[in-house]
């Protein structure tokens, strides 16, 4: 996708962006812009809502209505916006800490509510913007500035968390798989309901440096080797699955979408008003 096609969606005058050399966030944001272009979304009817963290900075790059909210709360800012402007396509760019760290409560409730939002989670398994602290997604034993002796905690599986909480479209891929990112983001946007696209991505500056993977290229490939497509995953034994992560479209179901349900209630109540049989 030539960049000029993306200029309709991106504030190219704000490039170069703030992310570190070799960081996956630029690649994910590029994929999001491609998804918008391929779907030919109308920038006047699209909004990007970013939280606080490296991922939140994506909001500044999109030439459309955009919000850079408080940490962990992008989802609930977007909830209010979507309900009063249902015709807006609302896309969230969240970090892993942003979404399931401080924002965990809003994340599970948004999945449960099944609001028509698309949440792209830039999962680099660390708090990057604040300098490399451990995250709820940091794998066991991995180093960070706040797990200097190795992470003692067990990480969330964001995709499983989203499915369990009721999200009706959940996909996972990596920042290596560009076309899959574009495909899943497009499907998430088109999906009527809460769509979660978890993108495992590499943070060379902190996660990589603190875990012997300083080179972005090498880290990206190690990340890729760690994943197994859904189709293959089913044939693997428990041992083969041990330190691997399944990627692909993990869940897709139809369930009443919250905005639509609320506006149906409004229509019903207002027609009752007219007929005068409201209580």
């Amino acid at each position: 996708m030539a960049y000029d096609l993306l200029e309709e969606y991106l504030r190219v005058e704000r490039l170069p962006h703030v992310w570190c050399p070799g960081c996956g966030h630029g690649v994910i944001t590029h994929a999001l812009a491609c998804a918008m272009a391929e779907l030919r979304l109308d920038p006047d009817r699209t909004a990007v809502i970013g939280g606080i963290g490296c991922s939140g900075r994506a909001a500044f790059l999109f030439d459309m209505d955009a919000m850079h909210t408080t940490h962990g709360r992008a989802i609930v800012f977007a909830t209010g916006l979507k309900l009063v402007r249902p015709q807006l396509t609302v896309i969230l760019t969240l970090g892993d800490g942003d979404a399931v760290g401080i924002g965990g409560n809003h994340f599970i409730h948004a999945c449960r509510r099944n609001l028509d939002l698309t949440a792209i989670i830039y999962n680099n398994s660390i708090y990057g913007q604040t300098g490399g602290q451990v995250a709820p997604t940091t794998p066991p034993h991995k180093k960070s500035t706040t797990s200097p002796y190795g992470n003692l905690e067990y990480p969330f599986d964001i995709a499983q968390l989203a499915i369990a909480a009721g999200a009706t479209y959940v996909a996972r891929t990596t920042s290596f798989d560009f076309r899959d990112m574009v495909k899943f983001i497009k499907r998430g946007i088109l999906h009527k309901g809460f769509a979660v696209i978890e993108v495992l991505t590499h943070c060379p500056t902190y996660y990589g440096r603190l875990n012997e993977m300083r080179d972005p290229y090498e880290m990206l490939h190690r990340l890729k080797e760690h994943t197994v497509p859904l189709e293959e995953w089913e044939q693997l034994s428990a041992e083969e699955r041990a330190d691997k992560i399944v990627v692909g479209e993990l869940h897709c179901q139809e369930r009443p979408e919250f905005v639509e349900s609320y506006y149906a209630l409004i229509t019903r109540m207002q027609s009752q008003q007219v007929k005068g049989d409201g209580n």
Partner: peptide, 16 residues
């Protein structure tokens, strides 16, 4: 789900 969500949704709605 909590008061933080409430005020945040209010701000989002206002910008809507």
């Amino acid at each position: 789900e909590d008061e933080i969500a409430s005020i945040s949704a209010v701000i989002g709605a206002s910008w809507g």
